[in-house]
Amino acid sequence: MNNLELQKTANEVRKGIIIGTHAAGAGHPGGSLSAADIFTYLYFEEMNIDPQNPKDPDRDRFVLSKGHTAPGLYSAMANRGYFPVEELETLRKVGSRLQGHPSMQYLPGLDMSSGSLGQGISAACGMALGGKLDNKDFRVYTLLGDGEIEEGQVWEAAMFAAAKKLDNLVVIVDNNNLQIDGTIEEVNSPYPIDKKFEAFNFHVININGNDFDDLRKAFAEAKATKGVPTAIIAKTVKGKGVSFMENQVGWHGKAPNDEQFAIAMEDLAKIDKALEAQA
């Protein structure tokens, strides 16, 4: 996909986030929207996957370590063809495959259950190690929140990944700078994030996580990196694409009401129009 196609797709992913959280009356739109371009790049460009064959042992793996942004992952998966986009409206409802946090027992195509912060990166390390053991070429991607890296287990896993030379592992940190109680500096600053991963012997790439040129370059660089794991520190805007949610901490874990839903969908329709004008 070229950048314009990716941008259009990411906008569809964002609509799915708004539709899902609005229908659920709950969920985490802010961090789903900040990572929408990352989800889109991974599922539409980067990863070797086939929605028709979600259990292919040679497929690339994705672990959403910041599991609360499941609405973003679900929307990317639906748009990619894992399940009907209409199903996004069942998010968080009784009987839905779209649990509040990802559960691989419910939804085919999920490579790991997650949601308790700090745990997904360890599972991703295990997958990458397993791939190495079997001389398989698949790669493992895991997305963490910037608040999430306050969890000690993240650094246990980081130490392990470098010590075991897991160069088939890419850790992406969605650095939208906001967590529930405020900015990440106010709460318990994990900065400098890049220096920390460097100290843990990662190859570190700083990018704008809402820019497809940056994403394309970073993932190519990760693939070319041998002997050490890669960390992509992706600076993003929380709530990206929805005017009243952008950089607002209050939109971490709150669903839009009917009125807000209408405004959000209008915002995203405007983006569609702007992208059409570029075509």
């Binding site: 042992p57 691989m104 360890s122 599972a123 397993g130 896993a157």
Partner: peptide, 20 residues
């Protein structure tokens, strides 16, 4: 895994997820 039992369990989960 070194002295890091939480990661030990998570890594084991990932290994199991890929068939080990």
């Amino acid at each position: 895994c070194g002295i890091a039992e939480c990661n030990l369990m998570g890594v084991s989960a990932g290994l199991a997820a890929v068939g080990k």
